[in-house]
Amino acid sequence: MDTYKLILNGKTLKGETTTEAVDAATAEKVFKHAANEHGVHGHWTYDPETKTFTVTE
């Protein structure tokens, strides 16, 4: 398992979190669910070198 990071750049919610996942696709599902639960919808990017997802509203 690897550690993946999410950076939230929402209009009303900003922050960072991490998750352990077997691959980037699994981490993305976890992060998108969490972002949706917090009402953050926007443009997603992924940097494979740093294993970091970013969502920007």
Score class of each variant (00 low, 15 high):
44 W>Y: 02
7 I>H: 04
18 T>D: 05
10 G>M: 14
32 K>R: 15
11 K>I: 15
51 K>D: 00
11 K>Y: 11
5 K>D: 02
24 A>R: 11
20 E>M: 14
52 T>R: 02
35 A>R: 02
35 A>M: 12
32 K>V: 08
26 T>H: 13
23 D>R: 03
43 H>E: 14
3 T>R: 09
17 T>W: 15
35 A>K: 01
16 E>H: 09
27 A>C: 01
32 K>D: 02
26 T>A: 14
39 G>S: 06
21 A>S: 06
42 G>S: 02
41 H>G: 07
29 K>V: 11
29 K>F: 09
46 Y>W: 04
1 M>P: 08
19 T>D: 02
57 E>G: 04
47 D>I: 05
14 K>P: 04
50 T>M: 06
47 D>V: 06
7 I>C: 06
17 T>C: 15
54 T>K: 05
7 I>G: 01
22 V>M: 12
43 H>W: 13
28 E>M: 14
11 K>F: 14
47 D>A: 06
19 T>C: 15
35 A>E: 02
18 T>Q: 09
38 H>F: 15
26 T>K: 05
5 K>Y: 14
42 G>Y: 04
46 Y>K: 00
26 T>F: 07
5 K>S: 05
50 T>L: 07
41 H>D: 11
17 T>K: 12
22 V>T: 12
29 K>P: 02
22 V>C: 11
10 G>V: 08
28 E>I: 08
52 T>P: 00
8 L>C: 13
6 L>W: 04
30 V>M: 10
45 T>A: 10
51 K>R: 13
20 E>D: 10
32 K>C: 09
30 V>S: 06
26 T>G: 09
43 H>P: 06
45 T>V: 08
30 V>E: 08
23 D>Q: 02
48 P>F: 07
56 T>Q: 07
19 T>P: 01
3 T>L: 11
46 Y>A: 00
41 H>I: 13
24 A>H: 09
12 T>W: 14
7 I>V: 10
33 H>R: 15
39 G>P: 03
26 T>W: 07
6 L>H: 01
30 V>A: 10
5 K>T: 14
8 L>F: 13
34 A>C: 15
12 T>N: 13
49 E>G: 11
17 T>E: 12
1 M>K: 12
2 D>E: 13
53 F>G: 00
21 A>D: 02
2 D>F: 14
1 M>Q: 08
19 T>K: 04
55 V>F: 04
4 Y>P: 01
50 T>Q: 06
19 T>E: 03
38 H>S: 12
40 V>N: 03
7 I>P: 00
53 F>N: 00
5 K>Q: 05
3 T>Q: 08
23 D>M: 03
14 K>G: 05
16 E>S: 10
30 V>C: 07
25 A>M: 10
39 G>N: 09
17 T>R: 13
33 H>Q: 14
53 F>A: 00
39 G>Y: 05
37 E>Q: 13
30 V>N: 06
47 D>Y: 06
26 T>S: 13
5 K>M: 06
29 K>I: 12
46 Y>N: 00
36 N>Q: 13
51 K>T: 03
6 L>E: 02
43 H>K: 12
4 Y>M: 01
36 N>D: 12
1 M>W: 12
47 D>H: 06
39 G>W: 05
31 F>Q: 00
54 T>V: 07
5 K>N: 05
43 H>L: 14
41 H>N: 11
54 T>N: 04
30 V>T: 10
12 T>D: 11
18 T>R: 07
31 F>M: 02
19 T>Y: 11
50 T>H: 07
3 T>G: 04
7 I>K: 05
42 G>M: 03
9 N>W: 12
49 E>D: 13
41 H>R: 12
45 T>G: 06
24 A>Y: 12
29 K>L: 12
54 T>F: 06
30 V>G: 04
23 D>N: 09
13 L>S: 09
48 P>L: 06
43 H>Q: 13
14 K>C: 15
16 E>M: 10
11 K>D: 08
44 W>G: 00
42 G>D: 01
25 A>D: 09
46 Y>V: 01
38 H>G: 07
36 N>R: 14
31 F>T: 00
24 A>L: 09
5 K>I: 12
26 T>Q: 11
52 T>N: 02
53 F>K: 00
3 T>F: 07
57 E>W: 07
6 L>G: 01
39 G>H: 06
22 V>R: 12
2 D>I: 13
34 A>E: 09
51 K>G: 03
44 W>C: 02
33 H>P: 02
5 K>E: 03
45 T>R: 07
41 H>L: 10
39 G>M: 06
7 I>R: 05
14 K>M: 10
56 T>A: 05
57 E>I: 07
54 T>C: 08
42 G>C: 02
39 G>L: 05
1 M>R: 10
32 K>E: 05
26 T>D: 09
28 E>C: 15
19 T>H: 07
40 V>E: 03
28 E>N: 04
22 V>G: 09
47 D>G: 02
43 H>R: 12
